[in-house]
Design a protein around this nucleic acid. Structure first.
Lengths: 229, 229
DNA sequence: ACCCTTTTTTGACTTAAGTCAAGGCGTATT
DNA sequence: AATACGCCTTGACTTAAGTCAAAAAAGGGT
């Protein structure tokens, strides 16, 4: 069955025996979400967690004045909304689809009982949580100790590490969203991109592509060793 | 034995059968740390994790210019340095004692094999990680979406929730450290405390005690609904 | 191809908070 | 008791980045 293959392809469930995959398939719910649709809100009861299958979603905090801070943009195959499964209480943030998306929803209790029976699954889930913690420490560091140019440079370097595409990288979110991910606003982001280009650090190719021209320069910016003039 | 009692008193190990507590006692190492001493550095190989027994430590990021951002100040009984145990790689931050402290060190491999055999321990550890994630999302929100007065107000409210001490609360770190926890600098913190006092929101009692005079006012500040004039 | 919407850019201005520097306070130590 | 050290506060100044406003550019749907 198609569903089982989808589940088996999720890194979190790597190495699960076929019968437990079948158990999962029995409890899972496929959710189709349209661009702009809210998946859950901060404060909602967390009755389970999600795994993104396709599309793109953002996990974010919302200030009363409407400003957003994006916490996380899961890649396909990655879980999200898992905090309440283990810590109880409510979702700590909002989740909304940036594009038409599909995800699998795993109800809490069925999943927890599976965890109890399966050490490998347990360790995988702890690895997910621990990696997310590591990302968040970096995010806190960036927000507190780097200025916007440094954060942007660090983000480009981060993207280029995962793509390995020879200094050519695709932003797969709009600049509005990127600003919100970096803890700034579109106007500021726009100005800093222009400055980076003027200094020959990067080159923008169309609206969603960046070419890194001076990697060492970006690294110096990200480390705080240099600044844009 | 004294050590076993100490281990049994750690919330993370709640409900472990006596023989597994004995296993833990066999692998654990007690570490005594003097005020100012570094426990581990960012980038160090993480060969295990710690549980704070007494004293006080800070987990923090360090910028090249020497500025610090504190990520976390564990309370006694709480684990720290656990990310590399589950996510591999290195410690994502520094740990240093703020006061003379004692902690227990649990080597990674022995602990992991124990986890594999014990679902309750597993779920406890996942709860620890998930709660920390929740704290970090709040920290990111505060850094990005609140100004310093709002962060400080939120911090006071957070402390007063855990102490229940009728609006009287003790800062158990210096104002220098508090500034570093809130993502600002001592000068700014000092000015904002003065403004809060002038507006009758709080009253400072000695150097490390704060009395909340207007809780609703603090809440409005923390939510961003009001600002200091 | 055109209209309408959303995204992005640019300009002028404001402001929160950082820097630098000096002085006062407090408490711990000999 | 005096000294010394770290901690905290205050003042004057600078600056990074936010706000507000408007125009330009890009995309999507009919």
């Amino acid at each position: 069955m198609e569903l089982i293959n989808q589940i088996a392809a999720i890194p979190l469930f790597e190495g699960l025996p076929p019968d437990q995959l079948k158990d999962l398939a029995r409890i899972v719910v496929t959710k189709v979400i349209k661009r702009g649709q809210m998946i859950f809100s901060e404060g909602d009861e967390g009755t389970g967690f999600y795994v993104l299958i396709s599309g793109r979603v953002k996990i974010f905090k919302l200030a009363p004045d409407g400003k957003e801070q994006i916490l996380h943009i899961p890649v396909p195959g990655e879980p999200f909304g898992e905090v309440p499964v283990f810590a109880g209480e409510r979702f700590p943030a909002y989740a909304e689809a940036l594009e038409d998306s599909r995800s699998l929803f795993f109800p809490r209790s069925a999943f927890v009982s599976l965890v109890k029976r399966n050490p490998a699954l347990t360790l995988n889930m702890m690895a997910v949580l621990a990696r997310r913690l590591r990302r968040f420490t970096t995010m806190i560091e960036n927000l507190s100790l780097k200025e916007v140019p440094g954060r942007l440079a660090a983000h480009f370097l981060y993207l280029s590490e995962r793509k390995e595409g020879a200094g050519e990288l695709r932003l797969d979110i709009s600049k509005n969203q990127l600003a919100s991910l970096l803890g700034t606003i579109p106007e500021t982001l726009s100005r800093i991109l222009a400055r980076m280009a003027k200094e020959g650090l990067i080159e923008t190719v169309g609206q969603r592509q960046i070419r890194i021209l001076n990697r060492a320069g970006l690294e110096a910016l990200a480390e705080g060793g240099k600044r844009l003039s």
